[in-house]
Amino acid sequence: MSHHFVEFKDVHFHYPDGSPALNGLSFRISHGESVGIVGANGAGKSTLLMHINGYLLVASGSIVIGDLRLDKRTRQDIRKKVGLVFQNPDDQLFMPTVFDDVAFGPLNLGIAHDRIAERVAEALGTVGCLKLKDKPPHHLSSGQKSAVAIATVIAMRPDILVMDEPASNLDPKSRRQLINLLKVFEHTKIVASHDLDLILDVCKRCIVIKDGRVAADGPTKNILSDKVLLEENNLELPLSLQNNHEQNSTSIEKNIPKENTAMNELEKLNHLLHHWKEHNDEHAETYKEWASKAEQLGKNDLSAALNKIYGAAKNLSSLFDEAMKKSA
């Protein structure tokens, strides 16, 4: 199993008309993180997203996703790892019925036809839209369309979920539902949006892009309470933080970041531990399968050795549990 991180290293990109869009962009997002991407219009957010799934290819610098360096040859494979949800669900949902649309990706991945229905049901169930299965997309409400658009991507079981303005055009209730939905996902998440409250709710980490470069990178609460930084980037304090500021004086403003930083770092650590433990559990199961396979083949000594590895992996899991308890 590969470890799905996303790494941009000094990425440059120019549009055909010569205007630079990315100008030495560098960051690394590791497995299980949830990262918000914010910035003014034209800062390079969309260009960044178009690079993540290989629609655009870098002019200079490199993008590595998991164990693959993104180029013309690998982009098909990278698209299997990276699920990209587009801003406008009408662009994302291009098939005549919801079912066909959700089935589109899995079919392209070569999933057997008899297992497609199951996959589709699972993905639609996750976003709570199973009953919309046979409807045409133009009969759905905006909120339903957004949810189904996400289902079309998670049906492909990507490792990394990338979203462009997921809540634009949604009424407040649908937006709230979407936020709750996103919170539940355990994928690595990358969300580009102007909706800073959404970023605050969904993402632990936030990257500010300016002129095709990273202008700031850190825990969301720190970044999004930095009034100066935000104003420099045509952004505003999220509403949920604005009230705080009006009611309490500036002294608190200074205090919050420090506490928050510590808390956030810890939270992040806990989160990471959680994910790596999950990984470890998965690995352990795999070793066990190998052991039983070896047994079937009559290789008892190999089976015993593999079982030992399984035991050790199980031990490692309990160590993870311990560490998690202490970091909680």
């Binding site: 799934n53 990209l84 662009d91 079912f99 066909d100 089935a103 589109f104 990706g105 036809h113 991507v153």
Partner: peptide
């Protein structure tokens, strides 16, 4: 422009020129 975006969305879901029906 929309066709371009739709094509993008199709590529993002591993479209290779073939449409399946189920």
């Amino acid at each position: 422009d929309r066709a371009e975006r739709v094509y993008n969305a199709m590529l993002a879901r591993s479209f290779t020129g073939k449409l399946y029906s189920t």
